[in-house]
Design a protein around this nucleic acid. Structure first.
Lengths: 300, 300
DNA sequence: GTTATTTATTGACCCCGGTCAAGTCGGGCC
DNA sequence: GGCCCGACTTGACCGGGGTCAATAAATAAC
């Protein structure tokens, strides 16, 4: 084993652009990527980048002009009703990497939608062991589990610089009451979370470790695609530990699997940057248990 | 190993009463159990039993007089608004054991609430392998996953004689729009499902096989208690295969675990009837990985 | 009743992935 | 520059639980 050719990104400038996380992600990058622009050679600093984002936020404060419009609550709502929704959406909170949106046990008073960046939700037992429940990308709702008993059953934490739309529940209820189409859309968005959890469950059920990671990457690429991001080069905002925990594995196993998939020519792995070289083969690995790679097999 | 004293239920008449499933469960049994009555010596046939149920259904057709009132959608809704809900709740469908409420891929047009009996929800891959997603007891809602894309992503099947309240979605929307408190309660009930899935996920994450089964039994007893059923004698409506699949294990492992817990004096297992002899010890097994039983240890 | 079929239990074997331990890399800091 | 620390990788070992197979019990079919 071992003579694996690590896909060498040039390092220096690449990492400089990457190391800030996908902070300009949904806003700056989305536009750039659609134009075929890649921020690799950009020399903007984080400071400059932050300023740009703030300006853009000013321009697109309203749901109506939000890039996530069609993925989020406003989908299918006409401009007249949008103003009422805008009135309910309170200040857009910003979180630094590791910052808590809410903690396990906190009193419930709002639902949240990720605007840019990403979150993880997780529970922690009194004994201290953690279970990551999900990763949340822009347009996805967080906090639904607290509706039953007015307390958050899981914590939510930013994986990178993240910006959040807060929907105070009392006001949201009013608007939803007045705008039937918004009520329907809210249900749909919540249902999406149920479906996401179901997928997670299916994966944890009986899939082998390699299938789990394949499914994880595949579905992440899917979600990136829906955000108009590049689906062949994933920049993972979460650590190997988070991935392992989410998949019900240990970090060593995840590391080995990345290695094996790289050996097979499916991926090019460079820390948090994963290039999917053979989407077809990756899709195969998601399949029904066949086609598992036997330790160091080169796949033509 | 092996010299395990099987808890001997008398067999004959017991099984006769059991074999019909818990059909009179939520309706006849709930009342009986609260009075300390046990249907073991009852000689009613299924036919007679069915008739009784029908009569009771006539008496308590409305949500207002339903025994599940406080567990279900009507919770916290005054009698004036209850009539509007009643109008939306359509015919109460009945399913025989194995009967499908809906199939994976079916078009969505209604949510369902279990009135009596029980369901399992599951997905089936093209290759034929199944993952059981959940078991649903009276008062619990089914079908939420279909709200996103108008098709059921999982199938739902009765585990025993089961009666269902159907909530056609178009009508439900109207009523919910008119009755704010019902809207809130619907959200809460849906959120319950999210929480249930989260618990399932936590279990599948990193728990050992024995902890999984312990948690499963413990939480099932909990839910039975909420339905005013006996929490120390569980009559499992689902097969060992369903349990194993739900827990991400194989049927042999579940069987062995039941055996080990019986050896430890925690349970008395007789096919689908599980008596919890030591709830305290069972709770211990749910805990953080400590206290696992090392193959045939007697616990005083 | 008898037979056939599903469901559950039990044993023997072995492999996937967890555990333990040792590197290695990269980034932040002075 | 040099140091440190956390994130990640890689190897060696082993045990929990999956697989295969045989049997028993209970239900369904006739």
């Amino acid at each position: 084993m071992g003579s694996r050719a690590r896909s060498g990104l040039v390092g220096g400038e690449t990492c400089l652009a990457m190391s800030g996380g996908a902070w300009h992600g949904a806003i700056v990058c989305a536009a750039h990527q659609q134009m075929g622009y890649h921020p690799r050679r950009s020399t903007v600093t984080l400071m400059e980048c932050g300023a740009v984002v703030l300006d853009l936020n000013q321009l697109r404060r309203s749901c109506g002009s939000c890039a996530l419009h069609e993925l989020c609550l406003p989908a299918g709502i006409d401009s007249a009703d949008l103003e009422r929704l805008d009135a309910a959406v309170r200040d857009k909170r910003k979180l630094a990497r590791g910052g808590a949106l809410f903690r396990q046990g906190d009193a419930f008073h709002a639902l949240y939608v990720v605007r840019s960046g990403s979150l993880k939700t997780f529970v922690e037992s009194p004994a201290g062991d953690v279970q990551v429940l999900g990763f949340h990308l822009p347009g996805e709702i967080v906090g639904v589990d607290a509706l039953t008993n007015d307390h958050h059953l899981c914590g939510a934490e930013a994986l990178e610089q993240t910006s959040i739309c807060e929907l105070p529940y009392v006001q949201l209820q009013q608007v939803v009451q007045e705008v039937p189409s918004l009520y329907r859309q809210l249900m749909r968005v919540i249902s999406r979370e149920v479906v996401a959890e179901q997928r997670h469950l299916i994966m944890m059920g009986k899939q082998q470790a390699q299938e789990r990671l394949a499914i994880f990457l595949h579905s992440l690429a899917d979600r990136y695609g829906r955000l108009s991001r590049d689906t062949s080069t994933l920049t993972l905002p979460m650590s190997r530990y988070d991935i392992a925990n989410y998949l019900g594995l240990v970090v060593e196993t995840v590391s080995r699997l990345f290695g094996r998939m790289e050996d097979a020519g499916i991926l090019a792995v460079n820390r948090k940057t994963i290039r999917i070289l053979r989407p077809d083969l990756l899709a195969d690995l998601c399949g029904q248990g066949l086609g598992r790679l036997p330790h160091g097999t080169e796949v033509a």
